[in-house]
Amino acid sequence: MLWLWGLTVHINFKLLVSGVLLSLSQQAFAQVNIFACEPEYAALAEELAPEARIYSATTAMQDPHLVQARPSLIAKMRQADLVICAGAELEIGWLPMLQMKAANAQVRSTDKGLFFAAEHVDTLDKMANVDRSMGDVHSLGNPHLHFSPERMLLIAKALTKKLVQLDIEQTEAYQQRLQSFSKRWQAASSKWHEMASQLKGMKVIAYHSSFRYLFDFVGIEQVADLEPKPGLPPTSTHLASLLKRAKQDDISAIVVASYQDLRGANWLAEKSSLPVIVLPLSVGGNEQSNDLFSLYDNVLDLLIQEYNAQKLLTL
């Protein structure tokens, strides 16, 4: 009980002495502390606020749907000034628990230090009626936004606004960073669109809808999914039906993300003699993908290499 009394004294002290001052001072002098749910948003933060302390809760080798609300993440969120997540319910299985346990009011509301990328762009595949029998689908649309160059630029702009809101004194620096990023991104985007034109019409079987936006922007058609339903692992009956589909001979490759299990893909590849392409899900998904730019470069390179090899074979 003595201990409890100590607590109340502590709150009292903070209230009386600091009150409003406290919340101001915390933001003005400290380095901005950023917690990113996924590595692509840590990478974006790195571009827009390189002097911030940035932590990514997940790696490109991890399924962002299934993350443990583990102690280290709670501790990091406790200290965060800004939390950047994909949103659209991607993190529904762990983010609310982290927020609850971290007791950090600053990052509970998007009015303050919480930023959901999906709120600033149009998502694909929104659904009016979502039912669990459909698997792990999100009514707010596909949350794996980061392979859409146009959307990432919009997100960068919105994120800069958020950074300015939280750290108003550095407004100019943030604006400059955004300007520089936009310039480089737009230049890279036109290069990527050019690369993408080589891939137009490519048909693939992929695992989950992880690359929905990539395929959308590049013009690749995902004709089938290794998952029988979103979130459910491949079953043998489903794989058998995919093999049947593969025999139509119009498919160029099986695409799997860096965190996904290869067993189903390898089985199908062996039976159908289709190549398997493992694409980095995000920054850090392979050696070449060190930032957003090299991630896009690498993903497009991998696809083009395989597609060209396939075309040579059929000639």
């Binding site: 997940t58 790696t59 080798m61 991890q62 399924d63 299934l66 993350v67 443990q68 965190y259 299990d261």
Partner: peptide, 9 residues
């Protein structure tokens, strides 16, 4: 708790 690569899937 342990998961290969920290991937709990």
């Amino acid at each position: 708790k342990w998961a290969p690569n920290g991937n709990y899937k």
